[in-house]
Write a protein that binds this DNA or RNA. Structure first.
Length: 471
RNA sequence: GGAGAGGUGGCCGAGUGGUUUAAGGCGAUGGUCUUGAAAACCAUUGUACGGUUCUCCGUACCGCAGGUUCGAAUCCUGUCCUCUCCGCCA
């Protein structure tokens, strides 16, 4: 979520930023937000003043009614005079009459029904205030609904361009391998080696599901361990989180409301399967206020990721590039606002270093405004070349969201020199995602006979084996 | 899944309809005292939003959501969570 005060102060500047993202629908909401915010503040100011008067009158009435020093006649006389004052909305005078320490003179005769009259006036007042609160609630929920659909704004360093085709590719790291045979795609290598079983995956769960067997299952487990150990060596704390989370957590990490149809929900509870561990980690410190001395807080978690992929029906249907269930190791940082961009560089370099250790050709993509997505202010993708399917595969995406998620999930910290809390910045990056890394390894390390060499760094995780053999 | 008990500030804990505008204690922070520290004493104490503009003021928040009432931490309903026991279970 953006800072409402910023929208209030610089609506035109906000619109310019959103224009760079190409989000026309969000652009159209800004004027409505400015107006709703104005209405909200006007109505709140009014009802809070009325509420203050009402609270004071109610307290004063309680004290008056309980007074043991005052005669019933005096009480009734005060109640009656105060009722009249409330009737003409002179609340200050009404409470002054009820609270006065010395006897209040007046020509109004005491009346047995005086308290009834006072209660009646207070009830009318209360009804008016309640109507006001209901109006405010309607406006506030409409305002919030609009705010939730506004994307994060791009950082000034992000290249302005319309689409993913304009993303700025960095130099290729590592040499593309020269084959003396035709490299095969993984969807041929996998079944031939008996390590990917597409038919049985489909039998059990349908299209875009698969079964890993023997060396395939072990290779995935090795990769997960390798990724986690690497992150741990980089001072990330390893965490294991629930894979099923409350609806509110998806709002906190900004998947909802915009991407609700990409996530799997449970039928019997209003809970959802993680599309990424980022959702769980973002909300780890929800509603907390951390101390600056603890920052940055870095976490790493492995989790399965469940995605419905409705938006890409018919695309990438072959192989395991785009599936409903995959494994990912996610790096995440909670930082001070001042250091989030430095941390983004560090995190991206760490993701690249994993590719380098696996000795596969990779490159970094600087994402342009039109492809930034909903919550990032700046983003880098890491892609690995896969010679079999002949394409660059995105294996990591590292983003800074600044305070966008922090505002939604109430992630704050106290600066060391102040007791006034500030929002944290959050960063996330894959480190890495397994099916695509497995594709890259199979296709880059394949031998002429169909067997696959195992990269050096993974051998300790596979009992020292050097090759996945043809059987 | 069944039965019972319970959810109050950073923590403990009092509070069964109106000076509770949440007591008291612990902790934390600042101060006094001290060569320094401890102890003692004094003061301060959360979050969000709005108004004001550098100082305050107001509103809301006692798990959450409704309801009753002129007025709710307190009464009613629903719901979530925690604990204890029983059942089931990797």
């Amino acid at each position: 979520m953006l800072d409402i005060a910023l929208i209030r102060q610089k609506p035109d500047w906000i619109k310019e930023q959103i224009e760079k993202l190409g989000d026309e629908a969000a652009l159209a909401r800004i004027d409505a937000i400015v107006e709703l915010d104005r209405q909200r503040r006007a109505i709140r100011t009014r009802i809070e003043t009325e509420q203050a008067a009402r609270n004071k009158l109610n307290r004063a009435m309680g004290v008056l009614r309980g007074s043991k020093t005052m005669t019933d006649g005096e009480k009734a006389m005060r109640a009656q005079t105060a009722s009249a004052a409330i009737g003409v909305r002179d609340y200050d005078r009404a409470s002054a009459i009820l609270e006065a320490s010395e006897a209040v003179g007046g020509a109004v005769p005491a009346d047995a029904a005086a308290f009834e009259e006072l209660i009646r006036e207070l009830r009318i007042m209360g009804d008016q205030i309640n109507d006001g609160f209901k109006q405010a609630e309607t406006i506030e929920s409409e305002l919030r609904d609009n705010m939730l659909w506004i994307p994060n704004l791009p950082h000034e360093s992000v290249p302005v361009a319309a689409s993913e085709d304009d993303n700025v590719a960095g130099a290729i790291q590592g040499a593309l391998r020269e084959f003396d045979f035709d490299p095969k795609p993984h969807w041929e290598l996998g079944p031939a080696l008996g390590i990917i079983d597409f038919e049985r995956g489909v039998k059990i769960s349908g299209s875009r599901y698969y079964v890993l067997k023997d060396w395939g299952a072990r290779l995935q487990r090795a990769l997960i361990s390798f990724f986690l150990d690497t992150a741990r060596a980089n001072s990330y704390r390893e965490v294991y989180t629930p894979y099923i989370v409350h609806r509110e957590m998806l709002y906190g990490s900004a998947q909802f409301p915009k991407f609700e149809d990409t996530v799997y929900g449970l039928a019997e509870e209003d809970k959802f399967l993680l599309p990424t561990a980022e959702v769980a980690i973002t909300n780890l410190h929800r509603d907390e206020i951390l101390e600056e001395a603890e920052l940055p807080l870095s976490y790493v978690a492995h989790s399965p990721c469940f995605r419905s992929e409705k938006a890409s029906a018919g695309r990438d249907v072959r192989g395991i590039k785009r599936v409903h269930q995959f494994e990912k190791v996610e790096m995440f940082k909670f930082t001070r606002p001042e250091s989030s961009y430095d941390e983004l560089e560090t995190m991206t370099e760490q993701a690249e270093a994993i590719c380098a250790q696996l000795k596969v050709p990779y490159r970094r993509l600087e994402i342009v405004t039109g492809d930034l997505g909903f919550s990032a202010t700046k983003k880098y993708d890491i892609e690995i070349w896969s010679p079999g399917c002949e394409e660059w595969l995105e294996v990591s995406s590292c983003s800074n969201t600044e305070a966008f998620q922090a505002r939604r999930a109430m992630l704050r910290y106290y600066p060391s020199d102040s007791r006034k809390s500030r929002y944290l910045h959050t960063l996330n990056g894959s480190g890495l995602a397994t099916p695509r890394v497995m594709i890259a390894l199979m296709e880059n390390y394949q031998q002429a006979d169909g067997s696959i060499e195992i990269p050096d760094v993974l051998r300790p995780y596979l009992g020292g084996a050097a090759v996945i053999p043809m059987t």
